[in-house]
Design a protein around this nucleic acid. Structure first.
Length: 270
DNA sequence: CCTATAGCCTGACGGC
DNA sequence: TGCCGTCAGGCTATAG
């Protein structure tokens, strides 16, 4: 589930449900999820603190505390958040519950435990240390910068779009969506893309991510013409109704419309 | 520097 | 009903 639009939703969700409340205690913590901090220290550094504000970079969420430090959240493949009041049951696979003022609870669930929780001093430095590329929706990522970031890459365009060091925020699902909107085959080599294709990719990426984020990344709220709701066996192209195809790329599956996304070659190559 | 691949981890799902 | 294989919207470490 969690790619940039989902993270944008999680950010809003925390803003709407949990901001400015103190953390009274932490429950059901699974220390497997902690990154670079002991359960004891995590507890000590968070309890009594308030959630002040949120920030996002790619698939990472930072929740600023009044101490100035930030709670780090990453959602892996199966992470989710659920806010509740009073003694409502926490979701299945809950790995951490923040008990807040007025008996509000914020539960972090993560079935496969591939997500991460931690504490960071400085989000900007964290982003540098992790060598993340610019956030795919950030203003700083203009079209020339996007082109530069792809410069020198030889593999498939899909791999580069999913590479967080190139651009942060896209995963398997949204890279498929962007490629579909741009009419580009996922196996197309980056160094063989013509300039107009790179340009199309940039604008489609911004458009797809902005629209999906606006709609809380909910599949049933996405605009007509999105591939996402159709990417399953016997799904059809929302544009030309061709049966979608599944192609294996670097150990994962990309869904494409074989009619709208044909492989092309730069002139002079063959 | 770059790319592709196996592995991590747990549980849901479908076929038998 | 139960077992078993397959698969999953992430990332990392490793080898080439």
């Amino acid at each position: 589930m969690p790619e940039l639009p989902d993270l944008a939703h999680f950010k809003q969700y925390i803003d709407a449900t949990s901001l400015h409340r103190h953390i009274q205690q932490i429950r059901q913590l699974d220390s497997d999820l902690l990154d670079g901090i002991s359960a004891q220290r995590f507890d000590k550094k968070l309890c009594g603190q308030r959630f002040e504000s949120t920030a996002r970079h790619g698939k990472f969420l930072f929740v600023r505390l009044d101490s100035g430090k930030h709670l780090l959240m990453h959602f892996g493949m199966t992470g989710d958040l659920k806010s509740s009041k009073h003694g409502e049951a926490t979701p299945k696979h809950t790995r951490c519950v923040f008990v807040l003022d007025d008996d509000y609870h914020l539960a972090y669930a993560c079935q496969r435990k591939l997500g991460r929780l931690g504490l960071v001093e400085n989000p900007e430095r964290f982003v540098e240390e992790q060598e993340l590329g610019p956030d795919a929706l950030d203003d700083s990522l203009d079209q020339p910068t996007f082109r530069e970031r792809l410069q020198g890459r030889r593999g498939s365009i899909k791999s580069s779009l999913m590479n967080q060091a190139v651009v942060a925020g896209l995963g398997n699902i949204y890279s498929d969506e962007v490629l579909f909107q741009a009419g580009i085959h996922p196996e197309e080599r980056v160094d063989e893309l013509i300039a107009s294709s790179v340009e199309a990719l940039y604008w489609c990426m911004r458009d797809v991510l902005a629209k999906a984020s606006q709609r809380q990344a909910k599949v049933d709220r996405l605009p007509q013409g999105f591939l996402l709701p159709h990417r399953h066996e016997d799904g059809h192209c929302p544009r030309c109704d061709t049966k979608l195809a599944k192609v294996a790329i670097s150990g994962r599956h990309a869904w494409i419309c074989p009619n709208c996304q044909r492989k092309r070659r730069k002139r002079g190559h063959h």
